[in-house]
Simulated scan of single mutants.
Amino acid sequence: MAGEVAMEAQEKEAQVAAWLKKIFGDHPIPQYEVNPRTTEILHHLSERNRVRDRDVHLVIEDLKQKASEYESEAKHLQDLLMESVNFSPANLSSTGSNYLNALADSAVALETKDTSLASFIPAVNDLTSDLFRTKSKNEEIKLELAKLEKNLTATLVLEKCLREDLKKAELHLSTERAKVDNRLQNMDFLKAKSEEFRCGIRAAEEKLSARGMDTSLSHQSLVALSEKLAELKRQTIPLKKKLESYLDLMPNPSLAQVKIEEAKRELDTIEAELTKKVDMMEL
C-alpha cells in the first residue's frame, strides 16, 4: 500500500515537471518547495490546464470547420452567380465593394442569418427595442442616482451635524470631568479637614473631661439653655402686658398693692431664673 502511494506521488511529480517544462518552455522554471502539498496543488492545476487546452482545441477545430464550410458556401454562391448572371464581386466598382462590405458588416453586427430584407427588418426592430429599453433603464438609473445623491447630501449634512454635536459633547464632557475632579479634590480636602476637626474636638473633649468640666457647659447644653432662655423671654411678654394693664386701672390702694406685689414677685422670679441662665451661658 505504501509502495503504491509512493509510486503515485512520483508519477504526479513527473507529470508536474513535464507540465511546467511545457508552460515555461526555454525559460527557467521558478524554484519551489517540493512536498506532497505543493505537488498535489500543481498536479491539480496541470489537470485543469489540460482540460482547458482540450476545450480550447475543440473550439478552434469547430471554428476552423465552420470557416471552411462558410468558404465553401461562399465559393458555391460565387460560382452560381458567375454561371447564372456572369456576376463576380471582383467586377464591382469601389463604391459597390464598399456597399457590399457595409452590408456584410451590418449582417454580422445584427447577427442575421443572411443579408435579405426579411432578416434585416426584425433585427433592426429588435435593436430599436433594445435601444428604447436601454434608454428607459438609463432614465431609471438617473432617477435612482438623483435620489442617492440627495440622500448622500442629507447624510453628509447629518454627519457634519453629528460631528459638531460630538465635539460639543466631548468639550462639555471634558469641562464636567474637570469639575468633577475639582469637586473630588475638594471633597478629599473637606474629608481630611473634617477628620482633623473631629480629632481636635475629641482631643479637646478629653482635655476638658480630664480637667473636670461640667457637662452642662458643653456646646449642646448651652444651645439648649439658649433655647430655654428665648422661651422664658417669650413667656414674660404677656406678663409684662398684664402688669401694664394693671397700672392703667384706677388705683385701689389695697387691691392694687396686692396685685402689684404678686406681679413683682412673679417677675422677680422669672428675672432671677433668667439671670442665672445668662450667667451660666457666660461661663
Rank of each mutant, 00 (worst) to 15 (best):
T175Y: 06
L110A: 08
K135L: 15
R37E: 15
A104W: 05
A272E: 15
A18M: 02
A118C: 01
L162T: 09
V278E: 15
S106A: 14
K137I: 08
D165Y: 07
Q15E: 06
V108W: 03
S97Q: 15
E266P: 00
L247A: 10
A123Y: 03
K191P: 04
E164H: 03
I237H: 05
T39N: 02
P36C: 11
I121S: 11
K113E: 13
L222K: 05
L92K: 02
T112H: 09
Q257L: 05
S209L: 15
N186A: 08
A18V: 00
K242C: 13
R234T: 08
D268Y: 02
S97F: 08
I23S: 01
L225S: 12
Q185L: 04
G25Q: 06
E266L: 10
E206V: 10
S84M: 12
A90T: 10
L117Y: 06
V16S: 00
P30Q: 08
A102V: 04
Q185P: 00
L63T: 03
Q65I: 00
L100F: 13
V124L: 08
E261A: 13
M7E: 04
H76N: 13
L80C: 09
K113V: 11
P89A: 12
V180Y: 05
A107W: 04
K233I: 08
T39C: 01
L267D: 11
F87N: 02
R163T: 13
A263L: 10
D126M: 15
N101P: 05
E196I: 10
G3T: 05
K191D: 14
E4L: 13
K241N: 14
V223C: 08
Y32N: 00
A104R: 04
E40N: 11
E196P: 10
K168N: 14
N98L: 10
Y70P: 01
F189M: 12
T115V: 14
L110N: 08
V85Y: 11
V51W: 01
L20T: 00
M187C: 02
